[in-house]
């Protein structure tokens, strides 16, 4: 009897010891860290730059977060299709994507017409493709919007009113609205006030919030907001060639050609849809089509006329003058 008692007690004790050992084994092992030690500006060694990485920049269109997520998902497609490594570059607010692309800080960029014109004329940046809209066209429009209950009924009513443009280098957010206003007889000086908000998103916000009476934004965003009843479309522009994917002039032509082919093969509505982040909000929702500099002749003409573009060494006028 006593023997059984000892056996039972030993078994129970052994069980507890095993349980403790197992529990300790299964429990997490914390990493020791000394928080009390402090240094100023600690850093890790910078990894050696990846020479095979191509940096991709973009014109800001929506809010930065959405732009970044959208283009990051697009770059994954490019990597898969070309085999090259791509990294997204975010142009700081105080910098210019035109300069970064022109100077080779980024090798490829999704830029609008105005940015392309400037980049091409100043730095010889090459257009690879232009975006296809939802209607599968290589053109887009700009729209001028106002509040739904605004008394403004036509563009001439904007005289003496406040206006919100998108980014200064935005085609749909600046150039096209300027063209519409110009054709309606309104100069910048006729406006009570105007601002370059930096993106279609901010321009739309400025109008919706009532800070500005009207604003110029991309057609897709304008239609979406109008559908929701947040804005009323005051004017719609004619078609202009859509935004581009352009490349720095120094990029290897073979690379350029491979990237172009990948872009032309891009099918965001079909086989390449998976993995994309809200690509329908971009200016190339249906993919890309071929583009040449000649496609942008009229836009260049207006940009020069409105003083939004200065002739450069690579502009057609400049070339012809050389």
């Amino acid at each position: 009897m006593r023997k059984n008692l000892w056996l039972s007690a030993s078994t129970i004790l052994l069980f507890f010891v095993l349980a403790i050992i197992v529990a300790r084994a299964w429990s997490e092992k914390p990493v020791p860290v000394r928080l009390s030690q402090r240094v100023e500006n600690p850093s890790l060694p910078l990894p050696s730059p990846d020479k095979d990485v191509f940096y991709f920049g973009f014109d800001r269109r929506l809010e930065p977060r959405e732009d970044v997520k959208m283009y990051l998902s697009f770059l994954r497609y490019l990597e898969r299709s070309t085999g090259y490594h791509f990294a997204l570059h975010i142009t700081p607010k105080n910098a210019s994507i035109v300069e970064e692309l022109g100077q080779g800080k980024v090798q490829f960029a999704a830029i609008g017409t105005l940015s392309y014109l400037e980049a091409h004329d100043r730095y010889g940046v090459r257009v690879l493709v232009k975006g296809l809209t939802e209607e599968k066209k290589g053109t887009y429009r700009g729209m001028i919007i106002t509040q739904p209950n605004s008394p403004l009924r036509s563009l001439p009513d904007l005289k003496g009113k406040t206006f919100a443009f998108g980014a200064r280098n935005s085609t749909q957010g600046h150039l096209i609205p300027r063209i519409l206003l110009f054709e309606a007889g309104i100069r910048l000086s006729d406006l009570a006030a105007f601002e370059y908000t930096g993106s279609h998103f901010e321009a739309a916000n400025a109008v919706i919030s009532g800070r500005y009476d009207a604003g110029g934004i991309q057609d897709t965003l304008a239609r979406e907001l109008a559908k929701k009843g947040l804005v009323r479309i005051l004017a719609t522009s004619p078609c202009f060639p859509s935004s581009t994917i352009s490349a720095n002039a120094q990029v290897d032509p073979q690379v350029i050609e491979k990237v172009r082919q990948a872009l032309l093969a891009f099918d965001p509505l079909g086989k390449d849809q998976e993995g994309l982040y809200h690509w329908e909000q971009s200016e190339m929702p249906a993919g890309f089509t071929t583009a040449t500099d000649e496609d942008y002749a009229e836009a260049r003409h207006w940009a020069l006329r409105l003083g939004l573009l200065e002739p450069g060494p690579f502009s057609p006028e400049g070339k012809s003058n050389r």
Partner: peptide, 14 residues
Amino acid sequence: FEDGFPPDLLQKTI
């Protein structure tokens, strides 16, 4: 953190 940053934290948590 005030008065600097723990270097241990930078090295072990990235």
